[in-house]
């Protein structure tokens, strides 16, 4: 069964082509400008590293959220549950050198340097919607590559039904990991077909630049049709497994955060509605936007869940 989703993008929401194409020039200029006056706030990111990457498929021509809004409003409980504090504290994380352990049901397990991964997986830019389970959203030009392309290189076996991701555990720097709340380190997972879906991205940058630490540097997942907590940050381990694993938020409140966590306005969180979302950067008097099923990516991904009761498997 194919679930049709209406895309409710107003014509006024669509960026003028000339404006869109001049964005790259603007980013370059803005990067040079900001590098001059606010170098400390850039953290470890290399200015303009990805200024000239090609635009990939599935990139939506939507008005992007201001970079400052995306970089200063982050949920990163490893540092703090306060969105401003986590932005500042995350600057302390050392992201170079970085390696990723690949384990489980694969023919080529091992520890891979991030640089080598990036050599094999050329990056591209994709503008995606991002919808948090807390009912706010943004539109971000991510830079990365399809997760599936990378996973195939490790040659998963027929037993690999799920892919599990783990965030770095470093309570010395990640002071939120010293106390409870969530079970550290953070673990997330996708079904293998979700992981292999061409929309699913491994991300290393945004806005033509390297990822700021608070946004998940140096390597994070982006699954645009799922709530943001699925898109795990600072990944150090990828494991291929046969059975559905336990994941961080699901473990902390299984009745509130499901394994699938597909964006769905029809299924409310037990404590709040998911029908609408606050768009970051919008003015005080802008009403919330109606949330779209699968965050507007229904045409691409609804088939993955055909026959499934999405109220039960939320």
């Amino acid at each position: 069964m194919l679930i049709k989703t209406k895309s409710n993008i107003l014509s006024s929401e669509i960026t003028d082509r000339a404006v869109f194409e001049s964005r790259r020039e603007f980013i370059k200029a803005a990067t040079i400008f900001s590098a001059g006056i606010m170098l400390p706030s850039l953290g470890h990111a290399e200015a303009g590293k990805y200024a000239d990457v090609p635009v990939g498929p599935y990139s939506a021509k939507l008005p992007v959220t201001d970079r400052e809004d995306v970089a200063n409003y982050t949920n990163y409980y490893e540092f703090s549950s306060n969105k401003k504090d986590s932005t500042v504290l995350a600057k302390g994380l050392k992201t170079k050198p970085w390696s990723v352990e690949v384990a489980g049901e694969v023919e080529k397990p091992g520890v891979y340097n991030l640089e080598d991964i990036l050599k094999d997986n050329p990056v591209q830019e994709r503008i995606y919607r991002f919808r948090c389970v807390e009912a706010w959203s943004m539109v971000v030009p991510w830079i990365g590559f399809p997760l599936g392309d990378m996973l195939k290189r490790f040659k998963p076996t027929s037993k690999a039904k799920f892919v599990e991701f783990t965030t770095i555990y470093n309570p010395k720097v990640m002071i939120g990991q010293r106390s409870g709340g969530l079970d550290w380190p953070y673990v997330e997972s996708l079904r293998i077909d979700e992981a292999m879906h061409p929309l699913t991205m491994m991300v290393t940058g945004m806005y033509g630049d390297e990822l700021p630490n608070q946004n998940g540097a140096p390597l994070r997942l982006i699954v645009p049709w799922k709530y943001g907590f699925k898109s795990i940050k600072a990944i150090v381990k990828i494991r291929f497994i046969e059975n559905m694993p336990e994941t961080a938020w699901h473990k902390s409140a299984p009745n509130e955060y499901g394994f699938y966590a597909n964006v769905n306005p029809e299924v409310s969180h037990p404590r709040w509605s998911q029908r609408r979302e606050r768009v970051l950067g919008s003015s005080l008097f802008t009403p919330k936007r109606d949330t779209e099923k699968f965050n507007g990516y229904g045409a691409e991904v609804a088939a993955l869940y055909s026959g499934m009761d999405l109220k039960k498997y939320f």
Partner: peptide
């Protein structure tokens, strides 16, 4: 005024299902 934008629809949807 700002979060629900004075929408009765939004009020009806958001308030009853939210214990807090």
């Amino acid at each position: 005024v700002l979060d629900l934008s004075l929408s009765w629809e939004a009020f009806k949807d958001e308030v009853p299902k939210s214990p807090y």
